[in-house]
């Protein structure tokens, strides 16, 4: 718990479904990235540099990552996707929790950003005017 000792600040109690699930995730510039479709729980003793261990019942646990993508489909229809198909935003990239979750990194740097990035490069960005800033005089 290296970060906890260095912070010296307080603790804020939230309920996951009430305050985190289905909230909008914004990147450091305020651009929407995804929604919180599910959350991954990991064992709390892992250090930042280790590969996180899965949480076990009754043993100290913490949030490891925001999950999105296929987990939404299974939350709608039931079941759960294999861990290899989870699309993660690491919890350590979360900066603020308000009416939306604000990240400390840019959307482009995240793995979950690929569908938007792909469409930008291959479709929408290629249409004339696709990179035009609407707030500027045209």
């Amino acid at each position: 718990m290296s970060r906890e000792s260095s912070s010296g600040a307080g603790v804020r109690v939230v309920d996951a479904r009430l305050h985190l699930l289905s909230r909008q995730v914004l990147d450091v510039d305020g651009e929407p990235v995804t929604t919180v479709d599910d959350l991954e729980l990991v064992a709390a003793d892992a250090r930042d540099d280790d590969a996180p261990r899965d949480a076990a019942p009754g043993e100290p646990a913490e949030l490891g990552a925001i999950l999105t993508g296929p987990v939404l489909v299974t939350r709608l229809l039931g079941g759960r996707p294999p861990a290899s198909r989870w699309e993660r935003v690491p919890w350590r990239d979360v900066g603020h929790v308000g009416t939306a979750l604000e990240l400390t990194v840019r959307a482009d740097s995240l793995d979950v950003h690929w569908p938007e990035g792909w469409l930008r490069e291959h479709v929408v960005g290629r249409i004339p005017g696709g990179r035009h800033d609407p707030e500027e005089a045209s």
């Binding site: 970060r3 912070s7 600040a9 804020r12 109690v13 939230v14 309920d15 996951a16 479904r17 009430l18």
Partner: peptide, 13 residues
């Protein structure tokens, strides 16, 4: 189970 309660560490603002 209706919800899971979490304690968010708040770092220096």
């Amino acid at each position: 189970v209706v919800d899971v309660r979490l304690a968010l560490e708040t770092l220096r603002g």
